[in-house]
Design a protein around this nucleic acid. Structure first.
Length: 657
DNA sequence: GCAAGGTC
């Protein structure tokens, strides 16, 4: 019988696939690595191999590292530009040596290496890592890969019997990304660190890093900060009409909302007063609903963790990872917001009926309340939306775990519930030539809201008005207000921007945010709370004229994008501000703190995948471009130093240190 | 002592 070695990207996939192919009869053998196990069984792959002896195991993500050789570790001994030209090497990480050895040992006696890494770009590259390790031990080993995107048994069996080849282009695109991220990141990091640390006020032990994701992340935070400091407030006026009926004051909002011209508002107001009586021209009553949430993705978990649970996105991910390891929730890294039609959702709901807090609600779903979840637009074809796997009672979990598990579970139960149902009434009031409106809401069925307290939807009933009736409003006045600047960027907003601009992946965005905090480029503070070491005002150039969107109008009910108190928000430090402004002042064609460069990298990776460019071309072109920027930055390092000195001095003048 | 991406 041929011997076939199967390697998955992570232990959970190896276990699942081995279970399916062996009919759950595989022998489990431990390996030198504490993370991976070998599953041994026989399987008939059909032609050309037929019935084979299989060892199924896994790696744990990447096995190799791409880095400069050790001797370049002495930064001061080389020019800062050395990472652009030094030869780099691929090594096996110390903590991955046991995994590599397991592959090598089993490859030695196998005819075929069958790769089962995730079917995405990184998976393709990880597949080439595995191949290279195996070929080193057994150069004649045949290499194939499985084409699969879910763990449904028939799908896995079909994938096993229809091997394909590794996609060399996708792997090459990742190899290009790895090389560029390292060379560019290392070069700029050395430049910034070695040339700026001597400025008084910068900690000489600190690394001042540059990276293709952390810098745009910083850029978003600085950008918002500038919008705040450069904001020019404007005064505006509006007309507010209140009519008391049945002892309830009903506020009618002006259709024009507000005008930035006091005289115009005064004239329009006088016309209303002249008309004396106002008339209800329309009473519109219609059913409405509040949609239940979509199935939970990683990005949504991070955003909501920040705004609902008041945890950092980084902590949310670490906690979710722990819950996954303990088997309480499903795999926490997924882009999918649709549940597979074949999934036993009722079975999962049934398990939650045991829970002391929401068990009764889950029972209600089992007793007829169940409703198929909505489908979002995303499907990574690898993992289902995040959901609870087993029922975990609160005392089995740590404090953070309890909160994340509770959110994941409530979200899941909300997904399996019905939308909330209500009825809105909208009154249209004509007074003189001006139109006003008021609206009320009656919640008829709360449904998912009963298990999902993170969202609010409350009844606000209007007294009865009849179409055509006329009255003199109880009170009318001109209101004055002024536009206010935006607020500091919140964590959910930042994650949203990074996601929209392709900065990092769903699994790494939280880390990039943590990096800019650790580097002291930005400070995180709680909205509403004091503290935080805020940067001083910037120099007075380029005062933008903004017309704010906030101000007088009362906020509508509902969740609002990260508005609750306690959400984390970010303020740039003097150093973070100095770095971004310093590069701005150099006026390069390319802006290092904007997301365009990362987008360009993404485009070039696609070109490699489609065969329009080779890995070598892309690396050569990109390195040449960044090298040019780097040389200019080095020549103009005085600008970067000056900007940072100015800002640091300003800070000393404006604060107490 | 540098990056970003997998995953443990």
């Amino acid at each position: 019988m041929p011997k076939i070695l199967c390697i998955a990207e992570k232990p959970s996939i190896a276990k699942a696939v081995a279970g399916i192919l062996s009919g759950h009869t595989a022998q489990v053998k431990s390996t030198a690595s504490k993370y991976t196990k070998n599953y041994e069984f026989n399987f008939d792959f059909g032609p050309p191999w037929g019935k084979s002896q299989v060892v199924m195991s896994s790696v744990a993500g990447h096995t190799t590292s791409y880095d400069l050789p050790k001797e370049y570790g002495a930064w001061a001994n080389y020019p800062c530009s050395i990472p652009f030209e030094a030869p780099c090497e691929i090594t096996i990480d110390d903590d991955k040596k046991a995994i590599a050895a397991n592959i090598a040992r089993n490859a030695k006696y196998s005819q075929v290496l069958y790769i089962w890494t995730d079917c995405d770009r990184e998976g393709e590259y990880i597949g080439t890592e595995v191949r290279d390790i195996a070929r080193k031990e057994n150069p004649r080993i045949q290499v194939k890969r499985a084409n699969f995107n879910n763990l449904e048994p028939n799908h896995i069996i079909r994938a096993a019997c229809n091997p394909v080849d590794l996609d060399e282009r996708q792997a090459a695109a990742v190899a290009a990304r790895i090389e560029l991220d390292l060379r560019i990141g290392a070069a700029f990091t050395r430049l910034q660190t070695l040339k700026l640390r001597s400025i008084h006020g910068i900690d000489p032990k600190k690394v001042i890093s540059y990276g293709s994701c952390q810098f745009p992340c910083l850029g978003f935070i600085v950008d918002r900060y500038h919008k705040i400091t450069r904001f020019v407030t404007e005064r505006f006026w509006s007309i507010k009409v209140t009519h008391v009926r049945d002892n309830v004051p009903v506020v009618f909002n002006w259709a024009r909302n507000r005008l930035f011209d006091r005289m115009a508002v005064t004239l329009l107001f006088e016309q209303c007063l002249t008309a004396k009586k106002a008339r209800i021209t329309k009473v519109d009553q219609k059913p409405t609903r509040k949609f239940k949430p979509l199935p939970l993705t990683t990005i949504e978990l991070q955003k909501k963790g920040s705004s609902y649970l008041h945890m950092s996105s980084d902590a949310v991910m670490k906690t979710a990872e722990a819950l996954y390891q303990k088997g309480f929730i499903s795999y926490p890294r997924t882009e999918t917001d649709q549940f597979d039609k074949g999934m036993d959702l009722r079975g999962l709901v049934q398990k939650q009926t045991q829970h002391t807090t929401w068990g009764q609600y889950a029972q209600g779903l089992m007793d007829g309340g169940f409703s198929q979840p909505r489908d979002g637009k995303n499907n990574d074809k690898a993992h289902p939306p995040i959901h609870p796997v087993i029922c975990a009672q609160p005392n089995a979990l740590s404090l953070d775990e309890k909160r994340v598990y509770e959110f994941v579970t409530r979200r899941f139960l909300a997904c399996c519930s019905s939308d909330a149902v209500g009825s809105t009434t909208t009154l249209t009031l004509l007074w003189g030539n001006e139109t006003f409106s008021a609206s009320g809401l009656t919640v008829l069925e709360r449904n998912f809201l009963d298990v999902y307290p993170y969202e609010r939807w409350t009844t606000n009933e209007l007294p009865l008005f009849r179409e055509g009736e006329e009255f003199e409003p109880t009170e009318a006045q001109i209101m004055e207000g002024k536009t206010s600047p935006p607020t500091f960027i919140t964590e959910p907003e930042l994650i949203g921007l990074m996601d929209a601009n392709g900065i990092g992946t769903d699994a790494t965005m939280a880390e990039h945010i943590k990096t800019v905090i650790d580097r002291e480029y930005v400070f995180a503070k709680e909205r509403g709370g004091g503290g935080g070491n805020a940067a001083p005002a910037t120099r007075g150039r380029g005062r933008g004229r903004g017309r704010g969107t906030r101000g007088g109008a009362a906020a509508a009910g509902g969740e609002g994008g990260g508005g609750g108190t306690g959400v984390r928000e970010f303020v740039p430090s003097t150093l973070g501000l100095g770095l971004v402004e310093g590069y701005d002042d150099m006026k390069f064609d390319v802006n290092l703190s904007k997301p365009f460069l990362r987008k360009e990298m993404e485009v070039k990776m696609k070109q490699i995948c489609e065969g329009q460019k080779t890995r070598e071309e892309v690396v050569r072109e990109s390195l040449a471009m960044y090298r040019e920027v780097f040389d200019k930055a080095e020549q103009q390092i005085a600008v970067l130093r000056r900007v940072n000195s100015i800002i640091l001095n300003l800070r000393r003048l404006l604060t107490f240190d």
